[in-house]
């Protein structure tokens, strides 16, 4: 059970807060304490829009411990409109509706619950935009 670990990650998990380097302009996700591009420590919080496209996706049938209740799940690389590519699951979608290049938006879901009595990790997943 890790109380502080998930607590530290909440702003990125729930609000996609990353960093913007005021020296080189790089947009980084998740938040950094030092720019991985230019080494500057002049970073400001930068909230990403949560809009992106599927870069590549796979259906996972054998999961690491803790994710078995979601099998089969879609694990994707999502390219955010600000640039960063992040690893995230897709949700509320069927295989036939998942394709490279499809537009997706961020939603917050239960990613992992530590047993029946541990903390619940809420974080980002992505889903196709709701049909009008």
């Amino acid at each position: 059970m890790h109380f502080a670990r998930s607590w530290r990650q909440q702003s990125s998990n729930l609000r996609l807060v990353g960093s913007r380097c005021t020296s080189c302009g790089a947009i980084l996700f998740p938040e950094r304490i030092r720019c991985s591009g230019c080494g500057s420590t002049e970073l400001e919080d930068h909230r990403l829009s949560g809009r992106g496209t599927i870069f590549t996706v796979t259906t996972v049938f054998e999961a690491p411990r803790g994710f078995e209740s979601q099998v089969p799940y879609f694990a994707a690389l999502v390219e955010l409109e600000e640039g960063p590519i992040i690893c995230a699951m897709l949700t509320d979608v069927d295989r036939e509706d998942v394709s490279v290049g499809k537009k997706v938006t961020m939603v917050t879901r239960r990613i992992l619950a530590h047993g029946d009595d541990g903390p619940i990790i809420y974080a980002y997943k992505f889903t196709p935009e709701l049909a009008g």
Binding site: E62, A63, P64, A75, C87, I111, L112
Partner: peptide, 17 residues
């Protein structure tokens, strides 16, 4: 550990992608 493993991505998932 945080951004990949913590989101259900292991070596097998990465290689599948």
């Amino acid at each position: 550990a945080t951004r990949e493993a913590g989101f259900g991505f292991g070596p097998a998932v990465a290689s599948g992608l």
